[in-house]
Design a protein around this nucleic acid. Structure first.
Lengths: 341, 341
DNA sequence: GTGAAAGCGCTAACAA
DNA sequence: TTGTTAGCGCTTTCAC
């Protein structure tokens, strides 16, 4: 099946290809006689003409595309972010090229390189580390980009992140309201803004709530995973201070906490209360029910796309970062039916 | 930052760009004097030359890319499939362009069109309907493609799918072994191969197990969602036959079944047993524990990519479809700890 | 308001 | 074995 080219449209319309090009582009449409332009458009439509994006991209070095760099799509945190990005971009004719990096810097570097060769106009990164040489490079080259969920120490890179500190404060207040005074924290990796911010907010909260802010009340997990959460919880049970409640750095760590408590014959929430973070999809189904801090995943993606589009439109605009508000989702397993087994 | 072009490499090496092109491509490398080729490669490496994929694609109409068409990435069934596809393609320098269609034919059509314009070399579709005009068109045009998870009535399109019939038989045998004789089925949409195959296998299983294969034992849900599952289950409770066990067409429907049973004050598995299908990620966390049929999601993606690569290498090869074996995952909530609430 | 000409960076047929 | 030529389909400067 042959696909019409601009040249063919031009021939049919009896004009030069350059004129056809002008008529068919919003920007340059005004340069063409209105009637001629209308004729060209009609003929183009009849012939089912659509511009070849490859040829256009080769000529213009643009692509109407952005690169979306995700650590791992099988982490349910990310698909809603992807959807948010896509839903904002699609109506304006942009699309997102998605890549999984598996949190590997080499894969990320190769992906970014590949995207740049394909003339992506900007990036959304969900992979930011606090120290992140690749991001520094891109920032130095003024590459349009927005970070989501996590930030870098380079705070001049625009970002859209959850208000971790406020979320932690809400969770801590909740635990205190339940009567807890002996609370511990399983922190995430400390090379990530989320891991650091939540840990700091935990210690600050202890202090503000009049509880001793002992650093022994924090154990750092080396990744955001159920396994790491279980390992951290075991360490806390073995050699940490007494506690009746755990603030997990995210929901996956909280699942690991459940596993470790279960191994030791401890019950939730009878013996130990657990609070998570993120409210990833399907967290409302787990047992024991998990109270957690909900992050607006979809909106994070959507806002990131909007922010990136702003940067693309006005590259000199002062960088802005968004902090999105969170909500505490209180859940309990003591409903009338499911509790029975 | 300037990026070296082939022309610049050629100038540095003192050869014509065509020679440089030959030297730097595996296929044509042999046409060039070995020493010259080595020199060109060395200089290219020194200059950090990498071929511009856009220019190459414009010239060759190839792209080293395939289109991966997904209904909805937030359905946890799909991310592992995506990973499987990517992991097979990446080592050979191919990549997958992912798009979400939201199950909308117009979005799918536009995405496929866009991919074709970008010279994708083939497609993996996770969106197949039994009747699917777009797939028929592509098949008629001999477009290389592979269907995953679902098939079309055009059985000459290669596919990689779970062995639904075998999975249903395993699940049914399990229920019968537990002593159930009054079993019902919540079927998925009947315009999808998965919905139809599982429903048929359910009826066939009833028959083979010596149970009456009454069609009243099936209710069809109009989408694969928790909401649709709850609605279907309510209808079954209100006007269906007596039953003690439910085979849900997939895990999301099973979650809806839980909701509906809970509303009516029925307990799982005390009053009603439920079996799901797919074993999507995080299903091991739900309560009451869900016994389900596990589909090898990642392998489905990986095999689909391999099959597509075969088709690309030999377009005339007879189409093959793969049926992947499933396993029954038996779970129970009666562990020593979590049962206590 | 329109056309002519050039070229984005690459590869493939043909010629030498 | 290498160079010449042409062109993939488009946009954009310049000239008319």
């Amino acid at each position: 099946m042959h696909r019409a080219t601009l040249r063919e449209v031009a021939v049919m319309a009896g004009v030069h290809p350059a004129t056809a090009s002008r008529a068919l582009n919003r920007q340059t449409e005004g340069l063409v006689n209105a009637e001629t332009a209308a004729r060209i458009k009609r003929i183009a439509a009849e012939m089912g003409y659509t511009p070849n994006p490859i040829a256009r991209s080769l000529k213009t070095s643009r692509s109407a595309s952005i690169g979306l760099v995700i650590p791992d799509l099988t982490n349910p945190l990310f698909p809603p972010i992807v959807r948010g990005v896509e839903d904002v971009l699609r109506p304006i004719g942009y699309n997102a090229w998605i890549v999984n990096t598996d949190s590997r810097p080499d894969v990320e570097k190769a992906a970014v390189e590949s995207f740049r060769q394909r003339n992506v106009e900007g990036f959304v990164f969900a992979t930011a580390h606090l120290k992140h040489p690749l991001l520094d490079e891109l920032a130095a080259a003024s590459t349009p980009m927005v970070l989501v969920n996590r930030r870098s120490t380079r705070t001049d890179i625009p970002s859209v992140t959850p208000d971790d500190a406020a979320g932690v404060a809400m969770a801590m207040q909740h635990l205190v309201d339940l009567g807890h005074t002996k609370i511990v924290h399983l922190a995430g990796p400390q090379d990530l803004s989320t891991g650091v911010n939540r840990r700091r907010a935990f210690l600050a909260s202890l202090d503000e709530l009049g509880l001793p802010a002992e650093s022994s009340r924090v154990i750092i997990c080396d990744e955001w995973s159920e396994q790491a959460g279980a390992k951290g919880m075991r360490a806390m049970l073995d050699s940490g201070p007494d506690f009746t409640a755990v603030l997990a750095g995210n929901d996956l760590l909280a699942l690991g906490v459940y596993d470790a408590l279960s191994e030791r014959g401890l019950r939730c929430p009878d013996d130990i209360s657990v609070v998570g973070f993120n409210d990833i999809p399907f967290m409302d189904k787990v047992f024991p029910a998990l109270t957690t801090v909900r992050i607006p995943h979809y909106e994070i993606g959507a806002e990131a796309a909007r922010l990136l589009l702003e940067v693309l439109r006005d590259p000199n605009r002062h960088p802005r970062s968004l902090l999105l508000p969170l909500t505490l989702v209180v859940r309990s397993s003591t409903g009338p039916v499911r509790a029975g087994n």
